[in-house]
């Protein structure tokens, strides 16, 4: 479903050139739960941004759901992203000026979903992550764990085919991290493809496959024992 073929990504400024990814090739099938690990600066977040069509590669090709999107324009990438991808970020990235339910609703606003259906799906998503009782609160009124649950709800509400989670537990304590991981695990179990960047071996062990990166390259892939 997601096929990267010799993907490279270079960040250039006037004086410095950084090779964030170098000849990365991998394939992620539908329904897989994949963990991506590696030291800081190895290109994990860059890989996730490219997978999520938030950034474009400097080299190589990327096929998503059979479409080669390597040369797509920003508008075309938006169309694909809107249809199929949900995101969970390490720093939650909730909009401070919107309530919990309004934040979750943002994921449906650009998909031509009628207002009544939006409200119903938002309520269901909040219920699913156990934060419905805080629907009218603003993000700054929630704890970190609660904010991340809202972010997970936002990622789920549009029923994406793929969820990309960039260190979803990085800013959480153990208890909250476990709770969020449980949500993601259940989402993956239900058939959604989940690609998660993590530093935690414990959380990586929940994934069916772990890909390790070092200096922008894939150095190993480990399958979970059945």
């Amino acid at each position: 479903m997601l096929t990267l073929d010799r993907i490279g990504k270079v960040y250039r400024t006037t004086e410095v050139e950084t090779q964030a990814l170098n000849e990365v090739s991998l394939q992620i099938d539908a329904g897989e739960f994949v963990a991506v690990m590696g030291p800081s600066g190895c290109g994990k977040s860059t890989l996730l941004n490219i997978l999520g069509l938030l950034d474009t590669p400097s080299a190589g090709t990327y096929e998503i759901f059979g479409e080669n999107v390597s040369a797509y324009s920003e508008a075309q990438l938006t169309t694909v992203r809107r249809a199929a991808i949900g995101f969970v970020f390490q720093s939650f990235n909730l909009i401070d000026d919107l309530t919990v339910e309004e934040n979750v609703e943002v994921a449906l606003l650009y998909r031509s979903v009628p207002a009544k259906e939006r409200r119903a799906r938002v309520a269901e998503a909040l219920e699913r992550v156990g934060i419905a009782h805080r629907a009218r609160h603003l993000p700054q009124q929630l704890s970190g764990g609660q904010q991340q649950r809202v972010a997970v709800a936002r990622a789920l509400v549009s029923a994406p085919k793929v969820i990309l989670a960039d260190e979803p537990t990085g800013n959480l304590d153990t208890a909250n991290g476990n709770a969020v991981m449980e949500l993601l695990f259940n989402v993956a179990k239900a058939g959604t493809t989940v690609v998660m960047v993590t530093h935690s071996l414990t959380y990586a062990a929940l994934a069916a496959r772990t890909i390790k990166l070092l200096d922008g390259r894939v150095v190993s892939e480990t399958l979970l024992a059945a």
Binding site: A75, T78, R81, F87, D96
Partner: peptide, 18 residues
């Protein structure tokens, strides 16, 4: 100051025109 909001809306599928 609302750059995060822009990023979130774009990642959620907002087009430039939106």
């Amino acid at each position: 100051q609302r750059v995060i909001e822009v990023g979130v809306r774009k990642s959620a599928g907002a087009r430039r025109i939106d």
